[in-house]
Write a protein that binds this DNA or RNA. Structure first.
Lengths: 183, 183
DNA sequence: TTATTTACTTACTAGTATGTAAGTTTGCAG
DNA sequence: CTGCAAACTTACATACTAGTAAGTAAATAA
């Protein structure tokens, strides 16, 4: 991994563990054993780093959710939900849930990028749900978009609650969501 | 309102608008036209302020959810959900959702208090849901506790998504949740 | 070989955040 | 009227944070 990539990965980790405003360039430079200015070399401002992290998250999401990767809706949904299960395994909240609270402390480019990620994720999930309902493997009474919002909010906040309470809230919610959608 | 109360109210507002680590004692002292040290007089450390804010939130929740305030489960549920609808009206996330992401940057007393609030809220909602099912006005297949977790996560993250996307995500989710529970 | 670019380090600045110590004002109890 | 406590202000200390300017070492291109 290049230094730039290491900064991106560690930066995302720090946001998802402590929050954006709770980490500093010093946290990154110390962990990677480089100097503060080296981080500024790759990402002049913290805003630049935040935007790059969100873009890499967006790209990752596209890879996971790209059409034709799986040929049935159930596998697509499982791939979608696995992202959150993996977050849970590493005691992290998802990037969106980790940045939402501090939204109004971000500069416009960060806000814009965060919006783009959320929009992409909810739209793709709505597609998957609609497809599954046509295939008769999913059942739900809401519109695909509304059901997608319900599922996404369950996942985002499940990770947050698990962190606070730590009594298998995530697993409960995760299994309930799958059971609820399965026709 | 006493200065102490004004600090508490403004502090909570700042957490819910910008996030805990994004506001400073200066933000409070400037808004209330007092000196920085005056805030420290009432709440020596930021941790003390956070704990006090969470306690006042806890007390408020107890007042709203106290047993025997309403005599039927539907009114109880409505009172519960109204808290989130009011947050939405003021473009704020709820305190729990606003602090979850930064959880690991808090000192132990803050973490403990946040946990207590979440625990109380989910337990009371589970009670309300169970009561409503007995009254045959609510219908759901999950356990009351799991259904409570599903509803709470919908509300918490709905406020967060609304903030990011701003295209009536909250209203969609809010109405879908009520429709889903109503028998 | 020389020039240029990449990826840094060294060294620094300006601003802000949390927090404290000591002094001041105001109202009230005895 | 005196003493005392509550609610501040003034002034300061410490530490960190974001960010910059200038220099360096190594690889690469002309």
């Amino acid at each position: 991994m290049t230094t730039r990539e290491e900064i991106l990965v560690l930066g995302e980790k720090l946001i998802r563990l402590k929050g954006y405003n709770a980490f500093s360039y010093h946290d990154i430079s110390a962990a990677l054993d480089i100097k503060n200015a080296a981080v500024h070399y790759h990402f002049p401002k913290k805003t630049d780093l935040a935007v790059a992290i969100l873009q890499s998250c967006h790209e990752r999401s596209v890879k996971i959710l790209e059409k034709n990767k799986y040929d049935n809706a159930l596998d697509k949904l499982k791939a979608f939900l696995k992202v959150y299960a993996d977050s849970y395994k590493h005691s992290m909240v998802c990037l969106v849930g980790g940045m939402a609270a501090e939204f109004h402390s971000f500069e416009a480019p960060v806000q814009k990028e965060l919006k783009a990620v959320v929009q992409y994720i909810t739209e793709r999930l709505a597609d998957i749900l609609e497809e599954g309902r046509k295939e008769k493997v999913f059942a739900f009474k809401e519109t695909p978009r509304t059901k997608a919002l319900l599922v996404v909010t369950n996942m985002i906040a499940a990770l947050q609650l698990e962190r606070i309470m730590g009594k298998k809230e995530f697993t409960d919610i995760y299994q309930a969501v799958i059971k609820d959608i399965a026709a």
